[in-house]
Structure formats: C-alpha cells, structure tokens
Nucleic acid binder design. Structure first.
Lengths: 216, 216
DNA sequence: GCAAAATCTGATATACCGTCAGATTCGGAG
DNA sequence: CTCCGAATCTGACGGTATATCAGATTTTGC
C-alpha cells in the first residue's frame, strides 16, 4: 500500500486542499454506495457525479475511471483488514489454536460482509493481472498468509505435518477459504447452514491443516 | 444446466438454422478470445462483431449483451467440468484417497487454466447475485460438492471427524480451494512454488479434511 | 477588498449502445 | 433454371456515456 500519510493528489499530480479532499471523499462514498446496488459494469461516471452533487468533469479530476475509484476504496478496506487481523491473531499452541482460528474466520466474514462489493472487484482485477489491484490484495493478505505459513513450518519441523505439504501453498489454500466465506453464506444459508456453522467448520479446518491435528 | 439438446434460439425465441448456428458460434469464439486479452469491462460489442466478420446488429440478434455471451460460454465450460470430474473421481478409502484427491485437484487446475477468463466472470456475476450465473455455477460444482460432503458425513459417522464440522460447509470450503488454485499459481510461482507443489499440497489438505487423517 | 490560487463545470468531440426497417442470401417448389 | 418466401444479416440512427479543456466560480492569503 502507498504510504497513507502521503498527501492525496489529483490526476495531474497536484496535492489536494481541504475542499478538494472533501469532494473526493464524497465521490468515493457515492461510488461505494452504488457498488453495493449494481455491478461495476453498470456504474456510470455520470451517475456517481450527479449523486455526489457534482459534475463528471470533477470526477475525472480525481480518478482515471470508475475502476480507479474502486482501487482507492480497496486500499481503504485492505488497510482495515490489516488492523483487524492484527488485534485478533493469537497463539496456535494447543488449546488456544481453535480460538485464534475462530477469531480470524470471524474477522474475515465481518470484513467481507462490510466490503464485499469492493473486495470482489479487487480480486477480479487482481486475478486479471492488474498490477495495482494485485499489490493492494497482496499487501492486505500477506500478513495472514505469512503467519499461517510460518506456523505450518513449525508443525512440519516437529513432525506433525508431512513434508510433501508446501507451507506457502497450504497457507494460500486456507486463505482461499477465508476469502470465499462470505460468498458461501448466500449459497449455504438456504440449506439451513448458519453463520455459526460456517465459522466453526472453517476454524476447525484451519486448525487441522495448520497444526496437523484435529482440535479437541 | 439447460438441456443441451434443446435447440438454440435467437433473442426473439426463433430457433436457429445452420447458418445462424455458425454465426453465433463465431461470435462466441471471438468473445472468448477477447476475454483472454482484456477485462470484461473493456470488451465492446462492436469489437466482437467486427472481429467475427459481422455487424453489431447481428450480435444483438443472438445475445442480450456481452455478459449474456459470457453466460453461454460459462455453460459450455461448466458442462466440461462435469464430464472431467466424473471420469476422475474415485474412491476415498485408505490408500486410494490421495490419488483421487490428486486427480480432482489436477482436473480443476486444468479446467481453470483453460477457462479462467470465463470462469472469473461467472463467479463474479454469481457472487453479485445474478440468478443465471448462479445456477450455472451451482450446477457445475454441485456434484463435487455433494460427493465431498457425503464422504465427510461418512467419516463423521465412523468417528474420524468432530461433529462440530458441518459437512456441506466443509465441502464448500474445500471447493473454494479448488476454485482458486489457478489464481494462486501466478502468485506462488514467483516464490518458487511449482504446479506440482500446489497439486500435492492441496490434495493432502483435501484428504485430511475429508477423512480426518493425514494421508500416509 | 482584491489578486492569485484552487476548485469546479458547461460545452463538446467522440464512441458505443441497442433497435428496426429493409437488404441480402438461401433453399426448395415448380 | 428461376422465382418466392423464409432465414439471416446490416446500414443507419437516436439516445446516452466518456473524457477533455477552456473558462467560470469559489476560496485564500495578504
């Protein structure tokens, strides 16, 4: 992520004064709002501008296009996850492991519930190879990924996990589960599977893969 | 999936003759080709039409919009996965489990490598709630999901897995791994993690979660 | 109170969308 | 063959969004 203390600039690189910052923020909020109502593909710059009480020309002063605005939103969200996961990740030793896992799973679900529209676009663009979105995504998930990989290495060193497991690959696999939890919900709830089921099941999978043993 | 033997129709519901079928196919192929080069958002109907040697008006004869064309492509791809997985899913008993898992993981990676552009759009639209894309996705993954869930239930009945695990939720989690394998590759290969690592690691996670024990 | 800087917008050239009436092509009856 | 009706395709067009820029408006510092 770009240094969050670095001053905001417009498309020509000029730093923003207080009025401009506010306009930019209003445009971002409106974008986020619209994004929760329709697909990115259907969002028009004109619509963002009008809803934000300004003009299309102003929008282009701050963003290259709609996707560029979503990139800014993605940076915000990603920073938020960093903060949350930090406060939530504890020890993976014995009895604590399951609680740590539960906390992480819960944090991810809340994060995705809050930002699903933005994060979906982020992941699509990232998968499509866009370097900027890729960077944002990586920086957001990296701490989680590294923490998990490290823990797996430890379990491997103590003989709890087979050497054929590649720690980083396994960490990536588990992260995939976390990233798609929110999407499951709408698929699974009609089947009578609750959020609690989802958290507990995922947490146990995490523990099992990370420690090599099923939690007690 | 809609009955594949049902005759193709145009936007007004009229069945297609042989020339029309060919034109439609050419438009689909062109769409697929463009989709592998740029994001859906950037694909123009005009461009598809011209590259397919026809006119925009013709495109609209067969598809509502670009997304509608991708939906058709998604149906194709999904059918393909059904076929592949069918031939590849074997027994989860003891020594066979790991091979079965390897086969499934390998099939998914190949499937995503082949169709990533289409499948990404399918999943995005599905996550966004589009009923048609949702249906296609569900029908494609359902057999895998059900097979895994059933196997987990069995392990649970024999006491190998804790009752706190919800079989369908666990199956969904594992499917998430499968669905994102291809995306990992571009992230993990720069770190020196090979396709083989990925297959082996994921397969072992599958076995561990499904049977409750690490494979030998 | 006023000039300079910052911010915003009307106007516009350009491009795509999505439709329809009519042109073109095709297949088969005579 | 040739002609006709059905199938298929497209030119042309009105509507709308994009993206830019010169100039209008607002704010700031003095």
């Amino acid at each position: 992520m770009s240094d969050p203390t670095s001053p905001l600039v417009d498309q020509t690189g000029r730093p923003l004064g207080p009025r401009a910052v506010e306009t930019r923020l209003r445009l971002l909020e409106t974008t986020k709002d619209l994004l929760s109502q329709r697909s990115v593909r259907e969002i028009r710059v004109v619509e963002i501008a009008r809803k934000a009480g300004t003009s299309p020309a102003t929008f282009y002063q701050y963003f290259k296009d709609v996707e560029d605005a979503v990139l800014a939103l993605a940076k915000q969200s990603s920073q938020e996850l960093l903060d949350v996961v930090d406060t939530v990740s504890g020890s993976w030793d014995g009895a604590n492991a399951l609680d740590t896992a539960r906390n992480i799973v819960d944090a991810f679900i809340r994060h995705w519930d809050e930002h699903h529209a933005v994060l979906r676009v982020r992941n699509l663009a990232s998968d499509e190879g866009d370097p900027q979105f890729r960077k944002v995504r990586r920086e957001s998930l990296s701490p989680v990924l590294q923490a998990i990989a490290q823990q797996i290495e430890r379990s491997q060193a103590s003989g709890h996990i087979a050497n054929e497991i590649q720690p980083q690959a396994a960490a990536a696999a588990l992260t995939a589960i976390l990233e798609r939890l929110a999407a499951y919900r709408t698929e699974l709830e009609p089947l009578g599977i609750t959020r609690k089921d989802l958290v507990e099941t995922s947490a146990r999978i995490l523990v099992q893969v990370i420690t090599g043993d099923q939690p007690k």
